[in-house]
Design a protein around this nucleic acid. Structure first.
Lengths: 329, 329
DNA sequence: TTGTACGCGTTATCAA
DNA sequence: TTGATAACGCGTACAA
């Protein structure tokens, strides 16, 4: 059996309340008592039961993180940042991977709802209306998506796409392809929207392919579709994994990158810079997304009135590498 | 305020106990009552408070996962498998990333200890004696390490190294280098041990370099040391990230792989097969490690007496790719 | 079959 | 400054 506050109280010869105070608010007890309690606690190896505490205080000191796929290198980076930030404030984090299945999200949130003080929803796939109700139960911040009126942290996809298109246009490309990610992905729609605006502004033709799974295999499958489209000299992928699949399949089919086809990814995951050719991609501050997400959530939790609808949009930056080059006619 | 069992009882016109029974053990209550309770529960959107429940039952339905670095692609794969397996049995999982700092592990475990039914320690870095005490408080399974007498799941590094050395020996390599990972890593020591045995058996000379951080940067730093060593024609890295760093730095220094130097990694992370040249590496069943770990832990939890000292050793397999080739003198 | 009452470990309230 | 007691929400032994 674990050692409880009672044991400490008995050993120290004081009441439970004094133990509680001596440990939580040392200033409100006589120094002598404080010392007796603290040494008794140390001697017994006493640690307050956070479960019992949360029952009365209503606080759990836990955060819930829900995301679609830990196998996508984008998410571990975000999660690590979340975890690091959360630890600073003594929060523990629950992790729930929904494996890209929108139907799993609601039950996953439901299961965690009781034992967390707030949620960080990373790229959730479920419909807005399925998610919104939970926001009334627990503070909730959305990452990589906007769900009115929840606070959110997103990347400036439009600007990223603008940079990418400007880059490709400068290289002489006149027809681009976009390989779309999951239909349920908000960032896919956001990137697609931004890309359309950018191509229109440049008077560039856009061919859209997909939707495909946001994985290497999804990209490989899309490659054949892209290569079949007429006039395409450059392709922008939903994310780096898809771009990887494109590169791989192009290589297998003898299509040289960037000589015959330029490829641009999105996210700048670790692997992107290590490939041959290294991948030109739109970088997102992944760690920052996680950190800002936690900060927003903490703010929302401590300031219940402040039904803050903060919408943070973080900058993106095109990283030009070897996978893009001049267009050939 | 959340809806409690009391609200349901009031609406259904029964006592709290009846609500409890109607939901937990529908057979032990009159069908009429059961229906009233269930419809009341549904109408109010009642979900039992798992925190309060765990206080009385002693069970939390949570698992704790502690690991050194989510940024190493090896771990997300394991975690995803753990998460998936845990969900099947209605367990939620806490994730704690210690950022390769042994000193953080004990506090991290301590913080979670109250609210989990068991721990999965992935490649823990702290000394055995710091970790063992917790095993008396909560069931605990160790992955990628052995801590007597705890149950563990490890990979057969010795056999993996045997395969790798046999491969390199067959290619005519007579002097190998090993780039060692963290001193605190059990798998590093395990791999190193296996490699020593294999090289001795083949009458091959082994040069040991390191220890370095288990990252791309660590590998890059090691590259210069390896290239300075005389006679080395092939190098085995602690893991794929280190191997990546080696490849990158070799490329930067104009050393061609595999023509001038063969490189072998360990883990077979996603990126390994996508590089140019693709990385020859020793593959581990990462998903299986996670899955087996959960199964072992569940077994340990349901069978408290069975202080089972199961030590599962999973097979490894050499994947030969382009980063290894014949030795040149 | 159902209801009453207690206890899990902690913090909050109030009186001493 | 301290101690007794209530309360958090639930499960269960026991009584009805």
């Amino acid at each position: 059996m674990a050692v409880t506050i009672k044991d400490v109280a008995r050993l120290a010869g004081v009441s439970q309340s004094s133990v509680c105070r001596a440990l939580a608010d040392p200033a409100r007890v006589r120094p002598e008592t404080r010392d007796r309690v603290q040494s008794a606690a140390k001697q017994l190896g006493y640690h307050p039961n956070r479960v019992a505490r949360s029952l009365i205080t209503g606080r759990t000191a836990n955060l819930g993180v829900v995301l679609p796929d830990l196998a996508n290198p984008f998410f571990p980076t975000v999660v690590k940042a979340i975890q690091t930030r959360a630890r600073r404030f003594d929060y523990a984090v629950f992790l729930s991977d929904t494996d890209e299945d929108p139907a799993v999200e609601v039950p996953a949130i439901r299961a965690l709802a009781m034992q967390v003080d707030g949620f960080l929803l990373c790229s959730p796939r479920a419909p807005d209306d399925d998610l919104r109700p939970f926001a009334r139960e627990k503070p909730m911040v959305v990452l990589n998506r906007r769900i009115t009126p929840l606070p959110s942290v997103t990347a400036d996809s439009a600007d990223g796409m603008r940079q990418a298109v400007a880059h490709l246009a400068a290289l002489g490309h006149r027809t681009l392809a976009y390989v779309a990610g999951p239909r349920t992905s908000w960032s896919n729609r956001d990137r697609q929207r931004g890309l359309r605006a950018a191509t229109t502004a440049h008077g560039i033709r856009l061919v859209e392919v997909g939707n495909v799974a946001p994985t290497v295999d999804g990209g490989a499958a899309a490659a054949d579709l892209v290569l079949a489209a007429t006039g395409v000299t450059a392709v922008l992928a939903y994310n780096d994994l898809v771009a990887l699949g494109l590169l791989r399949r192009c290589h297998a089919r003898g299509v040289r990158v960037p000589e015959q086809l330029s490829v641009v990814g999105f996210d700048d995951i670790l692997i992107a810079g290590l490939l041959a050719p290294p991948l030109t991609t739109v970088a997102i501050g992944k760690e920052r997304i996680g950190r800002v997400g936690v900060d927003l959530l903490l703010e929302l939790m401590t300031d219940p009135d402040h039904r803050g609808t903060a919408k943070r949009v973080l900058p993106t930056q095109l990283i030009v590498r070897g996978s893009t080059g001049p267009a050939v006619s």
